[in-house]
């Protein structure tokens, strides 16, 4: 039988002070309708570049940065989002961000761009399930209707008192990025707000 006892999560996690998994649900509910987990092994790069150098940056990172603000694009395991007219966030497989930064900073356009490694500064959470939009709606004032916030759309906004970036991957699957220092707050908020829907928070990979 699989070992189902809770275990302390250590290492490269924003929740190293917590014992996960945690399940919060009413007695009457058999299974939680929301799954939350940390996407731990993710490199994150914040890139500032204008439309002049954007295509070059796209080429060097193998990401499509021809995006409008609040649009995202997934390609070969990497997610790129446009945060503003000259600001992008790239989520890539752990470790690759170091090489990507080196590549960008040793390129011809090094003086026209700015690359910041925010892998540890930001924490990425995966939120999936039928009721995720209802959960988010309790603390986030943006229009979360499936017609208005759909695949490949993202938004920088507030979730309760935390500043987050929401990315819609599929109808019922989201990524919520927050400052690592706010991760426990966001977790606690989700567990509290998600109780009525049943929420399961696990350590993630």
């Amino acid at each position: 039988m699989a070992d189902t006892s809770p275990h302390m999560v250590i290492g490269n996690s924003a929740f190293s002070n917590r014992i996960l998994p945690i399940i919060k649900k009413p007695e009457s509910l058999k299974t939680p309708q929301i799954e939350l987990s940390e996407i731990r092994h993710l490199g994150k790069l914040n890139i500032r570049c204008t439309s002049k150098t954007r295509d070059m940056v796209s080429k060097l990172t193998q990401c499509n940065l021809s995006l409008q603000p609040n649009q995202s694009d997934s390609k070969a395991g990497r997610i790129a989002l446009c945060l503003g007219p000259d600001e992008y966030l790239i989520l890539a497989e752990q470790g690759s961000e170091i090489q990507l930064k080196k590549t960008l900073n040793s390129s011809d356009i090094v003086k026209q761009i700015a690359v910041t490694n925010v892998s540890d500064a930001l924490c990425a959470l995966s939120l999936s399930g039928k009721k995720v939009r209802d959960l988010l709606a309790k603390g986030c004032p943006i229009d979360l209707h499936p017609d208005s916030f759909s695949k490949n759309q993202s938004a920088q906004c507030d979730l309760a008192l935390a500043n987050v970036i929401l990315i819609c991957l599929e109808e019922d699957a989201f990524i919520c990025i927050c400052r690592t220092s706010f991760a426990e707050y966001v977790l606690d908020w989700c567990l509290d707000a998600g109780f009525e829907f049943g929420i399961s928070a696990s350590a993630g990979i």
């Binding site: 603000p69 609040n70 503003g84 007219p85 004032p141 943006i142 229009d143 938004a155 906004c157 507030d158």
Partner: peptide, 11 residues
């Protein structure tokens, strides 16, 4: 102009 319609609390 960048993000669209939002509540005043974001500004």
């Amino acid at each position: 102009p960048i993000c669209g319609n939002r509540d005043e609390t974001e500004f």
